[in-house]
Each structure stands twice: as structure tokens, then as C-alpha cells.
């Protein structure tokens, strides 16, 4: 069934990029603020290893949650040392060393296989703190960010739980924007896999093109609808534009490169309110999103 989004369900938009530093956060925060001029919007910073959208959304803290992941805890007294746990662990997070079982929490993916398949129930899962989720409010913007604790190596469980939190706490008739981590590895997959549409932000340079191609391939593999926003338009060359045309990838906007953007950004300010030429481009993205149809 196809539903027009003007009315019912609204989009979950993930803002991602192959290359880092292309403007994901700038686009996420400014686009959120533009939406919030007329409607409620939820912005979520899923770049849990270094969340920074909050620097531009100075909301009021309304909620704080400690986030946990589940890891197995070895019970020596009941263990029969059969070795099933280490055979069942795909991540080598559970290792049998003679008469003892070692658990490596940083390698554990919380899949429960060792625990559920232990014939003597000697690996019960216990909570381990991995980070913190905070929710802020500013006018029509709800801002949620998760932050991984220092020393934690896995972003994926925290990203997954943060998306679940959004699903559970916000109705689907609100636009939800997700600022994703850069790159094309597991955290990006986790952050984008449930989105209805992905915006890939790139810059028109050889590096930008190279990493955008990787991101495009990733989105194709995930069978996602996506479009490209060219940021810092005016530097570099036309290769990004040509590539998108050749591959029928929609270019949603070209945000012009100006020194003023960098100045405002460096002060933690929104840019579109000061720069009409940027606002015009953001408006194009907003219209594009509002006219997207979601395949339920």
C-alpha cells in the first residue's frame, strides 16, 4: 500500500555520508530547525562515538537514561566445561581455557547464543553500562542523543537501542531525522537500515566522490531509497554531479560554499537563518522529503 505522507505516516530520514566532515551535522540540525518552523520534528544524533548535533540545538534537558548492553557472566560452580559456549560464539567473545571460561565484553554482540545454549545455564546474561541517552526539548524540536562511554568499543548496540527508543516514544506522524555516523561500516548500517530515505551528504571533490561511491554501493546493497546533497558546492570539480546524473541518483540540493557558513558553524549557530541561499537549498530538501511516498 502506498501512502502519501502529507497526512499520515511521516518519514524517517537518515543523514549519512561516506566521507567524514562533509556536513552531516550541519544539514541535520539546519534541516531540523527548518522543519520545526512549521511542525514537530525529532532529531536523533546516532553518531554515538562523537555526538555533536547538540552543540547546535540548545534545548532543555528533559530526560536522561543510562543505557546497558547484556553480556554473559560465567557461573563457575555450575559449569560442566563442555565447551558449547565457545563453539556457539561467532565473535570469540567466550573462550574456554582449560578449566575456565573467559568472557570478553568488548567482543560480545549480546546475541545470547552462549547463554541460551548452555546446557547448565552457567552463562546468565547481566547488564553492563555502555552509555547514556539524553532527550532535550526546544520549541517544536525534540532532540535525542546517545553517547558511548569512554572505553566502550561497540557503537552498534547503543545505536540500535536509541532507534528503538525513538520508535517507542514518538508517533509515526512526526518527521524523524537521524544524524548518522560517517563511513560504511556496521554503525552506519545500523543507523540507516530502518530509515525510509537516506540523504548522502558529500562534497564535490575527488575524496568526496570516492567515499560517496562507497556509500552509494552500501545503500544499494541495503535496497534503500536515497539521494545526494552536495555541500560546499563551488569547490572541487563536477565529477560528483556527473556521477549522480549517470547513475540516476537524485541531487536534492547544492549548498553553496561560503566562508560565512564556517564562521557560523564554528560558533555553534545555525546557518540557514542567516543565509538565504542556504535556506533556499534546504527548502528544496524539505519539499523533496514531504513529497516522498512511503511503501508500507
Amino acid at each position: 500500500m502506498i501512502i502519501n505522507l502529507r497526512g499520515y505516516k511521516k518519514m524517517k530520514i537518515a543523514i549519512a555520508s561516506g566521507k567524514g566532515g562533509t556536513g552531516k551535522t550541519t544539514l541535520s540540525t539546519n534541516l531540523t530547525a527548518l522543519f520545526a518552523e512549521t511542525e514537530n520534528v525529532v532529531l536523533t544524533d546516532l553518531d554515538v562515538e562523537e555526538p555533536n548535533s547538540g552543540l547546535f540545538i540548545n534545548g532543555i534537558l528533559i530526560k536522561e537514561d543510562i543505557m546497558y548492553k547484556m553480556i554473559p557472566n560465567w557461573n563457575e560452580s555450575t559449569c560442566s566445561l563442555c565447551g558449547a559456549c565457545q563453539k556457539n560464539c561467532n565473535f570469540h567473545a567466550v573462550i574456554q581455557l582449560g578449566p575456565q571460561i573467559l568472557v570478553f565484553p568488548e567482543l560480545c554482540h549480546s546475541c545470547y547464543a552462549c547463554s541460551e545454549l548452555c546446557p547448565t545455564d552457567s552463562l546468565p546474561m547481566i547488564k553492563q553500562r555502555m552509555g547514556q541517552l539524553k532527550q532535550f526539548k526546544k520549541d517544536k524540536i525534540t532532540f535525542v542523543e546517545s553517547r558511548l562511554d569512554v572505553g566502550q568499543e561497540q557503537a552498534v548496540p547503543l545505536i540500535g537501542q536509541t532507534i528503538e527508543y525513538i520508535e517507542k516514544n514518538f508517533p509515526s506522524d512526526i518527521v524523524r531525522i537521524f544524524d548518522s555516523p560517517p563511513g560504511t561500516s556496521c554503525p552506519v548500517i545500523e543507523a540507516t537500515k530502518d530509515a525510509n530515505f537516506i540523504i548522502l551528504v558529500t562534497e564535490p571533490t575527488p575524496f568526496g566522490l570516492h567515499d560517496m561511491k562507497l556509500a552509494v554501493e552500501t545503500m544499494k546493497e541495503l535496497k534503500k531509497d536515497f539521494g545526494v546533497v552536495v555541500n560546499r558546492y563551488g569547490i572541487g570539480n563536477d565529477e560528483v554531479i556527473d556521477y549522480c546524473k549517470e547513475n540516476n541518483i537524485p541531487i536534492l540540493a547544492k549548498i553553496p560554499n561560503t566562508r560565512k557558513v564556517a564562521e557560523l558553524y564554528s560558533k555553534g549557530e545555525l546557518v540557514y537563518t542567516e543565509l538565504p541561499e542556504v535556506k533556499l537549498e534546504l527548502q528544496k530538501i524539505k519539499n523533496y522529503i514531504l513529497n516522498l511516498k512511503i511503501n508500507n
Binding site: 565473535f91 570469540h92 567473545a93 567482543l107
Partner: peptide, 15 residues
Amino acid sequence: NEAHGAGPKTSQKLF
């Protein structure tokens, strides 16, 4: 072929 946990696995082999 292992994405993760090569260190512990090889260590266990040594054991």
C-alpha cells in the same frame, strides 16, 4: 575470515 576476536582465538590455539 574472522572479523572480530582474532587475538583471543589465536591465543586459545596456543594454549
